[in-house]
Every structure is written in C-alpha cells, then in structure tokens.
Amino acid sequence: MSFPEISFYFFATVLVLSALGVITSRNPVHSALLLVLAFFTSAGLWLMLGAEFLAITLVLVYVGAVMVLFLFVVMMLDINLDSLREGFWKWFPFGAFLGLVMAAEVSMVLMNKSFGVNQLPVPPLHAADYSNTKELGRLIYTEYVYAFELAAVILLVAMVAAIALTLRRRSGRKFLDPAQQVAVKRKDRVRIVSMPSEKKE
C-alpha cells in the first residue's frame, strides 16, 4: 500500500466514524463538533484529489463560519434528551422511508450506466505551477457567469430577508450615535466660569 492510499483510508475512516458520531452522539455540542471534524476530513480528501481551492474554502466557510454559528446556537439551547426521544418510534417509519428514498436516489446516480464512476474520464495530472484557484475563477467569471451571478443574487436576497425578518423597532430604547459622540467639542460640554475667590470674613 502506498502512502496516498494509506492516507485515503485514514481520512475515509475518520470521515465515516465522525459522520456516524454526529447522528449517534447524545450531546448536541459533541454532534456539532464531530460535524466539524467530518468537514475537516472531507476537506483533506478533496485536497488529495487536487481540488485545493474547494478544500480550503470548505474549511474557511463551513468550518470557520457556518459551524461556529451552529455551535453558538446549539450551546445556548437547553435540550432535554428525554422529550427529544419521546416520539422516536412514532416517527421511525417516516424517517426510515426518507432514508431509503435518499439511498435509492444516490445509488441511481452512482450505478447508472451512463453516469457511473467507470464512465468518468480520468482527471489529467497537472504541472506543479497549475493553480486550481485561477482556473476556477476563470470558469466562474466567463463560462458560468450567469449561473454564478444568479446564485449570488439569491444569496443576497436571502441575506436581506433574514435581516428584514429579525429587524424590529422597539419603542423606548436608548441609542447613541457614535458619530455625534466623536464630534463633541469641549465647549458643548464644559463651561468654564471665572469666579472671584471668596473673601475671608
């Protein structure tokens, strides 16, 4: 077994185990942290495939930002495990059905004759100075520019909507405008009065 193979199996094992841990762990914070590990390991797998931009972006975006907010929310929840597990058997058939449908869909794609793993072309080996990032950037901004811009606009709309949903004007709140605070001059605040000293009786 060569070194790349060993590292592939190492990453794959860690990935599968941590993904299993996400759904079996009793503590939601542990689940979230295991999900972080799963993202990080799959970034390692992508790095082995030569997709360095995607791998690093996965770490940067999902591990560095999305999961931080996730963890933030999960940590503040006061979760009662018993009440969570209450309806388990009632909902089990529904969940199992959903899982089966997903497994069937994935296998339909992977085992399809025209789109199987065997049908994909072998990715070409690149020279050492090949920059994955540059190549992706050129494709995104030339060939796929409309799709890319569309995705960006959808994200922007989602962002505006999220802010608009949570923004509410409360009455009676006190607000300081830092620009006004900074612009304060001494003569606005302090008045220096010259007073004669009192005489001794």
């Binding site: 931009f53 920059s131 990032t133």
Partner: peptide, 15 residues
C-alpha cells in the same frame, strides 16, 4: 499556490 487561502482557513479555525 493557495497560501493566502490556507492562512485564512487556519486562522478561522482558532475560534
């Protein structure tokens, strides 16, 4: 090649 991205990714892990 992606040194700058790598640094951004690593420093974002520190949190």
């Amino acid at each position: 090649n992606a040194g700058l991205l790598y640094i951004l990714a690593m420093t974002s892990m520190g949190v």
